[in-house]
Structure formats: structure tokens, C-alpha cells
Design a protein around this nucleic acid. Sequence first.
RNA 1: GCGCCCGUAGCUCAGCUGGAUAGAGCGUUUGGCUACGAACCAAAAGGCCGGGAGUUCGAAUCUCUCCGGGCGCACCA
Length: 659
Amino acid sequence: MYLELEKRLAGHLRGVLLAKYEILLENIPMEIPPDLRFGELATPIAFELAKKLRKAPKVIAAEIVAALGRLEGFASFEPAGAGYINARLDRAAVVGMVAEGTGETLAESGVHALVEHTSINPNKAAHIGHLRNAILGDTFVRLLRAAGQHVAVQNYIDNTGVQVADVVVGFMHLEGKSLADVRLLLDELNSKGERIDYYCWDLYARISQWYEQGDAEENATRKKLRYATLHELEQGGNETSAMAELISTAVLRRHLETMLRLDIEYDFLPRESEILHLNFWSLAFEQLKQTGVLYFETDGKNKGCWVMTRPGADVTDGETNEDAKVIVRSNGTVTYVGKDIAYHLWKFGLLGRDFGYLPFFGYEDRACWISAEKGEANHPHFGGAQAIYNVIDARQSDPQANVIQALRGMGHISEADHYTHFSYEMVALTPRCAVELGYAIAEEDRGRAYIEVSGRKGFGVKADDLIDKLIAATRAEVDARQTGRDDEERQKIAKQIAIGALRYFMLKFTRNSVIAFDFKDALSFEGETGPYIQYAVVRARNIFRKAATDAEAVLAEFAGSDASRYLTDESDQDIWALWLRAGRRSLVLEQCINTSEPAHLAKHAFQLAQEFNNFYHKHHILTEEDAPRKLFLLATAAVALRELVIVLSWLGIESPEAM
RNA sequence: GCGCCCGUAGCUCAGCUGGAUAGAGCGUUUGGCUACGAACCAAAAGGCCGGGAGUUCGAAUCUCUCCGGGCGCACCA
């Protein structure tokens, strides 16, 4: 409703301004006033015009108001304050629009977007930082789809990196295991219901320490071993790479299982091993050379390398650019950014080569595919996106900027413009939380607001541990309340609430605020939390259950009735506010997409729930004796319920039947 | 040294393209379960929006500067 009326008023204003002042404005600023006393929609446009027209904003506002006439959906316009133009909406019309959901469904946009998120190195268990990444990414996918875009979801797997080599070194040299031994270990863990990613978490921490434990000579040997292993791994076709493949695939499966607990699914898992073995780089290298983005350095510290100019760098002609980014080392090998450029050319369909594809992981109604050197003949199509979103933490903004710079330099301007580094800040632990987990923390860290997690040190909160803990906590609550339900039902409810709490927790912070993680906050189910919103849904559902009807039936019966008489009293303004809030869904969605910020939607859901709870408390529906008013109150609950359920689903949060 | 991010109530955070009296949650104090479920609602206290300057009719928001905190700036991956 809001989005629709906002556009309608902006269009109308544009016409009026053109006719009256011969001014054509592309953008008419619109805002929702801070208080209903100022109406429901306002524009400060007169302030902007004041200079141009050399008149007081107040005068302009009055003139515009006089020229506005009547507009469908609006009751009146008035100049206010120092020059605002306030609009009062036609309450009956608004109620009708919100009840029907007019203007809330966005049309198919035809845009093919690609969102990449999660991308956990397959050498250890997922931790809370990865949860933030995946939840942000998955929620954004839901938002893009709600906005009518076609979205493919990718989870990039760096299976040939040094992190994987490290656990391989751990298995081979710390534990003396062969490929067959590792296979046995996997079976054994599997039969005991234990997690390989947890096993690797510890092993990775041990091996990282091991590299630094010995004397200088020993450590040098160990580092050599590390890079020899990495080299074998990149080469492929040997026992080392087979072990890496075995481990990384097993850990990857665990990550997919962990994310599935949060309702997060992927379409395609491109792996670094295929980018390597299918020689994506050689094609990219040719293009980079041809377009002059890369040049061969003949002097200075980067002598013998192929380098590119960094974004924003100030290059003086003829001088050696010491600050250039090395893409191909003097020994001929390509850096990470180089491979990433090749990969991103593929994402936009500009590389001229494709992955092979194999089905890898089964979801309820479809499969998740993985890259392969030789894939199946029949496979879905990936890559070739018009817009891409890379959900990667803020620490990686430099390399991301390099890739964008390369695309731009190659002349792929539109692609560079539609490349979004969906950046977010890390999840760190509060010192108190670290102590609670039994970690010894350094004296200097004690006074800090937060301490960064580190996989290398094995320092952090594992995703599955947190989820388990949340479910245990919600289960205890459900057990206390739902005595009439059986075990299976209770567990289902407990899970829904736990996941709701977790997803909301990760989404309520805006992207560039560091989350200082604390169990006390994360395990809270009161106040601004997922369960608070879910509880509002349950309350609304109970009304319809008790009334032996449902929201759709109520809205069908309500359709066409004039509700404006229930919205005029001072005491009914909170109901009016609730209807208005219920009509903001698409407006908030648009805002979230424009700013790549799902937190706005989380806030919207909470405010809606808050206003509903207030309404619920103040107006007792089922005992209402005036039948038309009762129907109106039921319709109010119905739109609130409908909106809450939809918005929660966009946040990836289920709406329980009871809790 | 260069770049990016952050600094708003005791704590954790919102505050959309600059707009009307700066808002939530938690915590504290107080009141409300014989009415649709109290994982709830209501009320109170709590703020020089880090400091300063500037732009503007108007600044928490934009610019500059200083202070405090974080993260990046490899031929590592």
C-alpha cells in the first residue's frame, strides 16, 4: 500500500510542479512523518524549491497544496510547519488496500542474480561468524526472490587452499594416518554419530601450533612439508590430494547439513580445484593482457611479475608503480586475486569456459550441484548472471575491489557496476563469553569489548554447538508450556523457535556493526528477538482458532466494508497505526534491496509484532459485542498475522502453530 | 604511512535518499494474569548523538579536523 501510494503521490506532484512552475523533478523525496498528527505521508519538497523559486517554503507548500486537488487514496493535503506538505490518507481506501494486499507483490523483474555466501574453508567446523555470513546471504536471497528476481545461490569452496593442506599434514604427520586410515576414521565417526568437522577443528588448531612449536630448524622443515603438501594438493592425482578430497568433501557435507538446520540451501558449489584444473586462469590471463589491465613489470620490487594498478592508485606515467597488485608472480604462478578474476568472468558469462557439473547433495525437492572436471551431460545452467552479490566479510574489501577494478579495466562496465561486495563485520566474542567457554585469554584482551575468533587457534563458538544449545533452551521452555503435546511436536516447536531466535539475532544488527557475541544475548527469547515475533503470530492464530474461523475467511467477509468509522476516535489511533504498518511490506523490501541491508526488514517485523501485541492487549476481540466492529478487529488481526508470517518467511523464520 | 569501518541512554543497538519533540530492546523502579496464552502489556527514570569547525532554511546523518577503538594494506593463501 505505502509503496503504491508513495509512487502515486510522487507522480501526481511531478505533474503539478511541471504545470505550475515548469520544473521537472526526477526524485520527489517522500517520508513517513514521525507522528500521525502530521498525516501518514509527507514531502519536504517545498524546502528544496525555495531557492529556485525565491519564495518562502511555507508559501510554496501552500501553493502546491492548492494545486493538488483530489487524488485517489488520499483524503487531504495540508501545508505544515515551516514548509512541509502533509498528506492524510483515505482511511477506508487504505484499509481496503491493505486487506487485499494491493501493491505488495512485486512483479517478476527478469533479472538473473547470483548470490554467493557461506564459503567456509572445508577444513574445520562452521562457527558463529560463518552463521552470520550464511544467514545474511540466505535472507538476502529470499528478499531478491520476493522482489521478483531469479536468484542462483552459490557456495564457493576453496578446497585446495593451505587450510586444507594443513589438516592433511595433521592427519599424515601428526596422526600418522594413511588414506585408508582416514577412510576408516570417517566410518567410525559416522557410526558413533560424531562430527568430522569437529574432529578437524581440533586437529587444525593442533597443527597450527605444531608449525611453531619446535626449534627454528624443525619449524622450517615443518613449513616446507606444509608447502610441499599444498603443492601436491594443487597438482592432483596423488594420495595427498585424494586425502584432501576425502576430508574436504566430508567436511563440506557437514557444513551443508549445519546450514540446512537453518533452512539454508544452495544451488551450486563451485570449487577451486576445478577453477585450477579447467584452466580458467589461462583464458582470463589472455583477456587481461589484451585489454592492458595487466602489464609486465620490468623494474622495482615487482620485477618479473604481471601486475595491475590498484583501485584509486595515483599512477604517474613512466614511473615504476611499486604499489601495483601482483597477479602473476615472477615464478609464473597466479595469485588468489588472479584466480578470483577468472572466476568472476565466469560468473558474468564472460570467460568462454564452463564447469562440469555433478549432483552432490539432496534437498527435499531438488539437488545441489558441485563443480567437476567432467560432469553430467544434463545439468542446470549456472553463471552468466546480470548482477552478483558476494557475501564476504569486510576484511576482504581490498581483494574484492581489485576484482571489480579488473572487470572495469577490461571494459565490463555494467558487470563491474552490478558487482556488489555484500560486506559485513565479524562476529567476535566478548571476553566474558571467552572465559565462559574455558579459553585462557591474554591480559590485554580482558578489557576489550570483543576478541576476534580464530580457527587457527581453535578459538570460537561452533555453529552446531550454538544451535544445539538454543534448541535445548527452547525445548525446556516448550516442555514447561506445552504439556499436552507429544515429544515430536515439542521438538519441532523448539527447533522453530531456536532457529527463529538465531536468525533474528544475526539479522537485527546492521551489516557493518561488529557483533560481540554473548550467550546471554543470543539465548534471549524476550524483547527484540525472533521468538517475540513468533509469539505474536501464535497469539493471532489462537484468536482464529478460538473463533473457529481463519484469517482468509475473515478478510473475505470483511472485503468491501467501510472501516473508517472505527479509526476516527483518538483511542483507535493505535489500530490505524497497525494497519499502516501492515501496508509497508514492499516499501521495506525495496529499501532492503537498495541498501543491501536485511536488518531493516528485521526491524519492521519487530515493530509490527510490537504494535500487534499492543493491539491484542488493548482490544479484546472475541468478547466484542458489536458484530461489525468485531469483524473489523478480526480483520485487523488477520492482516497483522498475514504480514507477520510473510515477513518472517522472508527472514527465513518459521511461524509455529503453538509455542 | 595509506585505505575502509565504528563512536547515539548504565549495557546492546536502530535512526531509509539531510527534515518536525533523537527511538527500541536489555537492565533498574512501579503497576497489570478469574477476559483471545504474561516468551506479553503499561508507566517512570535515563541523552551536549566522541570533541571542535564548516556547508544548509534545517545536521546524529554531508565536508574538514582532532580524539578514541577495530580491520585491512604481501610475489602468504
